[in-house]
Amino acid sequence: MNFFKSLFTPFARVSNRNYTFLIIIDCAIALLLWQVFAAGGLIPTPGRIAGSVLRIVSTDDFFDNLFSSLTLTLKGMFYSIIIALVICYLSVVPIFTPVARFIIKCRYLTLTGLIFLFTLLTSNGHNLKMSLLIFGIVPFFVTSLLSIIDAINEQEYELCKTLKMNNWQTLLEVVIIGKLDQVLEVMRQNFAIAWMMITMVEGLNMSEGGLGTLLIKSNKYIDLGTVFAILVLIFAMGVFFDLLLAKLRTWFFPYTKLQIRK
């Protein structure tokens, strides 16, 4: 009885076992509702999607497409995080502050309007996709990272001063080393944006394949079973990377476990 009461009480603590149980129940209900309401309609049923997933996974070019999307995303993420980190770390130096603040505002720019410009500036399709991906991700990375820097307690800087550190040592200790764990968290949160954008940029240049290309082709032929199957695979990969990055954070920075409410 207490368990059911706790499910509806704010801030109530639920054990890991019960939480897993809750997830399974929620998923089962969602699938059941989907199966009931989608039967005979436009949206394919879970059973049909599962069949499509198995079919896609067993095709010859699926792993090539998956590999192509993953490589592009990871490369884009890597370059984006490096660029974003440099911008954010330099943002505490007054001369670079306006640049960083301007980049934050760039997230309101739509990529569609810039495709032509990027096409002119890049030499091939791969570079076009990569540059669009980086341009799309960096403002979001910078926004998240700068909010972390802005939230640093003034007393941490004061502590550095009392420990006789100069301004560069303070930057290293408080901003760079001190917030390294949160960089992984930002990566985790923004991986979703990168993963979402990949399908869009892959549609611009289909020669390299990728899940985005598969998705666009299936959409063209209104093959909704395949479309949903690809979406399920994209979703599953996203969830996998979400878990992986969360795990990496606690492996590399064990103290983060102490700060998270369980």
Binding site: L159, K161, L163, M165, V174, D181
Partner: peptide, 17 residues
């Protein structure tokens, strides 16, 4: 000058990392 006097603030701030 800052750094010549040790400071122990009320909330005992330390580097949590």
């Amino acid at each position: 000058k800052a750094g010549e006097v040790g400071v122990v603030p009320q909330n005992y701030i330390l580097f949590n990392h």
